[in-house]
Structures are given as structure tokens and as C-alpha cells.
Amino acid sequence: MNLRKYLKVYKKFLYTSLASELEYKTNILIDLITAILSLIGSIFLLSIFFQNNGYIGGWKFEQALIVQGIYTILNGITNTWFNPNLTEIVKHIREGTLDFVLLKPIDSQFFISLKKINPSGFLEIMLGFFLLFFCIKINQINLSLSFLSLSFITISCSICILYSIWFFISTTTIWFVKTWNAIEVLRSFLYIGRFPLNSFSFSLRVFFSIFIPIAFITTIPSEVFLGLSQLWKILLEVIVASVFLITSRKFWLFALKFYSSASS
């Protein structure tokens, strides 16, 4: 009954935000071109890296493309859901309309992180999937059931981790209204996710496994594609993802408590 209500509300969210975005049609077209150019650019850069001896960090070009594909999907998801909603929450806080959200008989985290959608990110997601299918073909990966389910699990976990990081930053807007710069820092770090983590030096690898869990976001799913991943890594990713999700929820509730005791 409750789930049905949330589904119904989400359908409305989808409809209203698609309708608002369609008010700016040229914008969508430009964003689509941007997504395509961006993928071409990344592959171009990757090809430069492989000019030397055909390996970086022990990965072949065809294998590194898998990382690229997963990154593109995740980036598409970020652009479709996380980024527009962050823009929205900043607006809510700056204009003081968060009050309206809090007074709605619906979960505020649900409302705030899913209200908006940017359709031009869809293409990026599709491009990422095409690239992945292409990689499955050139790497001759067997589409077994266990492979499909493991890759599904790991990619979902990546999405959860990524969502939690974004939502965490969105939440901090309650204290610091300007979070654009923090977002820029995050984006520049996430940029690393385009490349196999092994191609970096040891210290950076440690940094990107612990502080910003890029290792979990793109590397483990790619390893699943190559059949390299150990079970414990996948289990660890599931645990990390749940910890991130729970923390983001707790942090939001904490922030709301602060908001309602300090705002005026």
C-alpha cells in the first residue's frame, strides 16, 4: 500500500520533470552531443595511453574499455538523477522552500533525491551499455547466469555508493549553502574511475580505495566482467554499499534535526 503510493508519486516525478525538461529541447540535443563527444574523447585519451606497449596497469585496451563502459553508465546515472537533484536541493535551501518538502506527508529523502530527472543522461547510460556489450563481444565473455547476476549486484552496489556520496554532499548544503566547489572536487576525483585502478601508483590506489571508494565503484564490477574478481571482494562491496546507504540516511536525519533546531 505504501510502496504503491511511492511508485505512484515517482511516476508523477518522472512525468513532471520530463515535461519540464522538454521545455528546453535544444538543451537536450546539446547535452546529447556533449555525451557523445565526451565518450569519444575518453576513448581517444585511452588510446594514447596504449600507444606505448599495449598495457596499462596490466590491462589490455579491450579490458580497459570495460572500465570506460561502466564509468559511462555511472556517469550517465549521475547526470540523470544525482546532479539535477543536487541542484534542486541547493535551490530549496537557498530559497527556503525546503519547509514545503518537510511538510509533505512523504519521506523527505525520497522526495529530495528523486524529484528531478535529466533525460539527456539516458543517452550516456545507453552508450555505456553499448560499449559494455561491445566489450563482452571482443573479450569473449560468457554470458552465464552467475556472471550476469554478479555484474548486476556489483553495478547496483556501485550505484548505491555513488548515490550515497552525492546525497551526502547534498545534505551538507544545510550547513554550507555553496557546495558547488565540493562537487567539483568530487567530480575531479571520480574522473579517476575511467581508468583501471592498477594503472596508478600504490599510494594513489590506497587513497582511492579508502577515502573515495573508486576502487569499489568501477574496478570491482570490471573485474567481475573479466572473471578476475574474488568472492570476498564482491562481499566487501556489498557491505561497503550498505554502510554507505545507511550512513547517508542517518546523516540526512541528523541534518534535518539540525535544520529544525537551528533555522529560523
Binding site: 555553496k178 566547489n181 579517476i192
Partner: peptide, 28 residues
């Protein structure tokens, strides 16, 4: 603070450098 963050967000070149030197790509 924001400007400091901006400066940090510009460190992508260093990551790239790390890839280049760690894989000896500059040989070519």
C-alpha cells in the same frame, strides 16, 4: 574556502602524470 576547493579540483593533471610515469608511457 571555495577558492581553495577550486584549486584542489584542478589536480586532474597530477593523476594523469601518475598514469604516465607509473606505466612508463613517456617512453614512446
Amino acid at each position: 574556502v571555495e577558492i581553495a576547493l577550486w584549486a584542489i579540483s584542478g589536480i586532474i593533471p597530477f593523476f594523469m602524470l601518475n598514469i604516465w610515469t607509473n606505466n612508463n608511457l613517456n617512453e614512446s
